[in-house]
Amino acid sequence: MQKTYKTGSPPVRQSQGMSTETFAEVPHPTRFDTKIAVLLRDDLETWQRLNVTAFLVSGLGTQVPEVVGEPYADADDTPYLPMFRQPVLVFEGGKEVLRAAHERALRRALPRAVFTSDLFATGNDTDNRAAVRAVAAADLDLVGVAVYGPRNAVDKALKGARMHG
């Protein structure tokens, strides 16, 4: 059973690839009033999906500091970097779903990051920014969009997308 982040009845299990132990029953699962979501074009190869997701969420953490939690440390006091304080939900859809989601995110002024197909051919941040700058918003060949904001606004922006599977 895969872990979901919607409120539901416990117990909640960890996702595949992790320990198969179940978490203790959670009397009141956390329901965040905000949402971090990544929308990927459904024709990307696996390596592209992973790469695009990593790039997109890195932008949110730098511009929306409230999404980042406190640093981690293990029992030996080895420090680790902080991570998002809430789940990142990953969705997929066709070109038109991405275009519509991008337009709705812009209209709602949601913090957002974009990844275009042109960025697969660049090799550095300067060229990445130049590739996006060269194209009008309506003409971007989007392969990924990340958005953050109130749950309802993000849900409306991603209307038509499906959970990545």
Rank of each mutant, 00 (worst) to 15 (best):
M1T: 11
K3M: 15
Y5N: 09
K6N: 11
P11H: 04
P11M: 08
P11S: 11
V12H: 14
V12R: 07
V12A: 08
V12P: 02
R13C: 03
S15M: 14
G17Q: 03
G17V: 11
M18D: 10
A24P: 11
V26P: 12
P29Y: 11
D33H: 04
D33W: 07
T34W: 01
A37C: 05
V38L: 03
D42Y: 01
D42C: 08
D42E: 12
D42P: 10
D43P: 12
L44K: 14
T46M: 09
W47Y: 14
Q48W: 12
R49A: 15
L50T: 09
F55L: 10
L56Y: 08
V57F: 02
S58R: 07
S58T: 13
T62P: 02
P65G: 05
E66G: 05
V68R: 00
E70D: 07
P71Y: 06
D74F: 08
A75R: 12
D76L: 14
D76G: 09
D76M: 11
D77I: 04
L81K: 14
L81W: 06
P82K: 11
M83R: 14
M83D: 09
M83C: 15
F84T: 15
F84S: 09
R85L: 08
P87F: 04
V88L: 04
V90C: 10
F91S: 00
E92W: 08
G93E: 03
G94F: 07
K95A: 12
V97L: 10
A100Q: 06
H102L: 00
E103F: 09
R104Q: 13
A105R: 01
L106P: 00
L106Q: 11
L106R: 11
R108S: 09
L110H: 02
L110M: 04
A113Y: 00
A113R: 04
F115L: 05
F115D: 03
D118S: 10
D118V: 03
F120D: 10
F120G: 08
A121F: 04
G123T: 07
T126I: 05
A130D: 13
A131D: 09
R133A: 15
R133L: 09
A134E: 15
V135T: 13
A136Y: 02
A136L: 08
A136R: 13
A137F: 14
D139Y: 06
L140S: 13
D141F: 07
L142F: 07
V143H: 11
V143P: 08
G144Y: 06
G144Q: 03
V145E: 01
V145Q: 00
V145T: 09
A146S: 12
A146D: 04
V147M: 05
Y148K: 00
G149W: 05
P150R: 11
A153K: 02
V154C: 10
D155V: 08
K156E: 08
K156S: 03
A157C: 00
L158V: 06
L158N: 02
L158H: 03
K159D: 13
A161G: 04
A161V: 01
R162V: 15
R162A: 12
H164F: 15
